[in-house]
Design a protein around this nucleic acid. Structure first.
Lengths: 197, 197
DNA sequence: CAATTGGCATACAGTGCGTATGTGAGTAGG
DNA sequence: CCTACTCACATACGCACTGTATGCCAATTG
């Protein structure tokens, strides 16, 4: 029986990722001391370097985890829509709502790109965009969306707009009102993709 | 005559900003050693701390300078358009083109937001968005753009989409082809703001 | 011409990252 | 069942970088 060993290792990795995720999500990547957050997980930097190579490696692992969770949440919400177009729109607005959470905003939209570069190049964190791309492709084949459009490109642009919308809401004095305005403007932009009669 | 003194000070500030701008724009904010780039300007960190307080303060100064330049360039190009809508579209595409430059991309869209937070909250770097907001407002009054839209919000979303478009082009294997696709997708999104017949 | 301001350099301390090395618990062969 | 090995993780060390406290010298002012 060689389970205990494997389980201990997985537990250690999990603890490190959880501690780092909390630190990165609150005080930010640059300010997070490896000594501090490994200690908060009851470990030392030795474990961190053994499992993740360096601080960036740990950030990658954290990002992969968050991306997976986001993809699940988006699919859950959007799959209930009546039409595919509505499905697509719901997917986008859910994305904005998730981007409102400080942890996601900080790690996925701020520190992540600054430390690891263009998110489009990340190896393990593209589930959300991939899903949006698929829907756009399908909508195009159904004739709902204009044909002259590269789906993945469009998905990325929408992504960018979403994150701005979320930041605007998050930093607003009156998030309720700002949210309405931001989502309205966002949907208006999406209308541009609709094929005209 | 107390020019020489003032001029020397301005020269020092200029040299520091230029050296930092180059370092930030190439190797990035986090990797740029203050000792190194102050030395490359023939100075030491003493001058830096005297004039800018800390590393972040210097980044702010660099960003303010770049923002000013960007605003000038946008206005130069866009002011030649025949219609106001075209003027607005040109403004956006010019913005994308500028965002293609590695220095601007790195400092304004990656490291800047990571270190200083939401660009919308920056005190001295909003000239570009302000201009776009103005045009959207005017277009709205002329009935070209849908009335039910907050101009500043829309400007920010477009900003986000622009920066994604630029990153996509910049990281592409075939920038020429990607550029066409990205700008086409971008214009398609903008069409959503047009009032329909 | 003396006094003072302040621009900038130098010296110092704290902290954090990365690496090299050590140790003890689990694992495999005889 | 005992020994040798592996490997997860800790400890110890060196280096680089930021920020602050202090010092010096030139320019300004009366």
């Amino acid at each position: 029986m060689h389970r205990p060993r494997k389980e201990m290792i997985a537990a250690t990795r999990g603890k490190l990722i959880a501690a780092a995720r909390h630190a990165f999500g609150t005080i930010g990547y640059a300010e997070a001391s490896m000594d501090d957050f490994t200690a908060s997980a009851g470990l030392t930097r030795g474990a961190l370097y053994h499992h993740f190579g360096d601080k960036k490696g740990l950030l990658q692992a954290v990002i992969a985890e968050i991306d997976g969770e986001m993809a699940v949440r988006v699919n859950e919400v959007a799959s209930k829509a009546p039409t595919r177009w509505q499905h697509f729109v719901d997917e986008c607005t859910t994305y904005i709502e998730m981007a409102l959470e400080p942890e996601i905003q900080r790690i996925m939209f701020r520190d992540g790109p600054a430390v690891l570069g263009d998110p489009a190049q990340w190896p393990n964190a593209n589930a959300c965009t991939a899903s949006m791309t698929d829907h756009l492709t399908a909508l195009q084949q159904e004739g709902v969306v204009v044909a002259d459009l590269d789906p993945e490109t469009a998905a990325r642009l929408i992504n960018g707009a979403s994150s701005q919308a979320a930041q605007r809401i998050a930093n607003s004095k009156d998030p309720e009102a700002t949210s309405k305005k931001a989502i309205a403007a966002f949907k208006q932009l999406l209308e541009g993709l609709h094929k005209r009669a």
